[in-house]
Amino acid sequence: MVWTGVAGTRLHIAAARPVHHRSMLLKPAAHGACIRYAVPPWRRWMSKRDSSKSSFVSKVPQFPTWEPVAENQLPPRTKISPDLVDKLERLALVDFGNQEGVNCLEEAIRFADQLHVVNTDGVEPMDSVLENRALQLRNDEVKESDCVSELLQLAADRVEEYFVSPPGNIPLPKREERLAMLKHSAF
């Protein structure tokens, strides 16, 4: 969802759900319910505006109050270079999959760019709502020990009492090779 206004016009989010305004045929209640209303029972709980009752002005805003963010308020669109794709894949050890994945990232960044219209001068970044609460400390006691069998049996592969991995400190192969490697994997 990117709020872009071209020459001041507003673009809404793509409508998520169709709004059906058909009136419904009434169906008699099947069985079990002893209801004797003129309208089907569930109709009672349906939303309806009852303006006749109100003797005061509603405090609820009747129209959307958001200000759309214009495209020209945003910084230039970020393009993800192939080098950056490679770097992110190596740092995260998660692959983009295909160009669509890269496009998704670019869209995500574009969405995040909307932050830049907010004035944050002099505002302290907030790590968490607990920033003024002191960290609880625990006593230096051994409480959890010797769960080695419990832990080891969770691992898919192990050697005696060790967890095991292939040799490390070997950089990932080049991107083309990686894509081939992943294609051959189980999923």
Binding site: L93, V94, D95, S165, P166, I170, L172, P173, R178, A186
Partner: peptide
């Protein structure tokens, strides 16, 4: 855990892909 065993990095990458 994936079946790849060429390196730790490759294991991680395929495991997380799968």
């Amino acid at each position: 855990r994936s079946e790849v065993d060429s390196s730790t990095e490759a294991l991680y990458a395929t495991t997380r892909h799968e």
